[in-house]
Design a protein around this nucleic acid. Sequence first.
DNA 1: CTGATATACTTAACAATGTGATACAAATTG
DNA 2: CAATTTGTATCACATTGTTAAGTATATCAG
Lengths: 115, 115
Amino acid sequence: MIQIADYYSPIVGEFEQLVLLALLRLGNGAYGASILRELRERTGREIAIGALYMTLGRLEAKKMICSYTGEPTPQRGGRRRKHYLMDTAGQQALGRAYRTLRSMSEGFEQQLARM
Amino acid sequence: MIQIADYYSPIVGEFEQLVLLALLRLGNGAYGASILRELRERTGREIAIGALYMTLGRLEAKKMICSYTGEPTPQRGGRRRKHYLMDTAGQQALGRAYRTLRSMSEGFEQQLARM
DNA sequence: CTGATATACTTAACAATGTGATACAAATTG
DNA sequence: CAATTTGTATCACATTGTTAAGTATATCAG
């Protein structure tokens, strides 16, 4: 059981942002493996699967995302998928983080892209 | 004395990114109060001064930024300023973080700006 | 020189987030 | 049901974020 402070913290961490962005990109249907693939392909980082589930669990505990369990798919085997969707709080937090970085980067985009 | 692991960690946290961006914007001459002002004005957040110095100290320990002590200014009083500059590692880390977020946001910029 | 005032930096303690290694759960197949 | 496949969960610890103090250094009035 993940414990979360009872005051609302609108700030999301660096990796949390990446996970929320992956959910935004993938839309409904996203689950562990597809999120992992998206993150690896787009960031080029070697991301541990445990790190991802840990972060998904924390984001859900903070009500930034929600989840539902998928139906078992015939011809496949294996445990059911757990699908994730961004909740309102997650969208707001992601939007804030995005605008903050935009504001701090404003006018330096070219330079940053070449650093 | 800040302790840092002896392996190189290229990933910077959420607030560290903001501080590096402030240094990029301000250029040479940046110091505590000017960095704080820039962050507050551009992000709209209430940032504690201690949080900033803590982060500056950690970034310096990781060799991402360097510092020098300024000369005392006549007609002013008060302790000397400590000026900060991004080092090569900081520029690289900031560039990587920027490109990662760009890649994850690609195609969703309008939506993110309105979230 | 000395205390008052202004300016600026530092640290301790704890909370939140990030990470790798390992364990656990559930569905299909034979 | 055992083996295999697919997928999720958790522990332990490292790193980063935050608040609430405290410490240091420069100028000025007297």
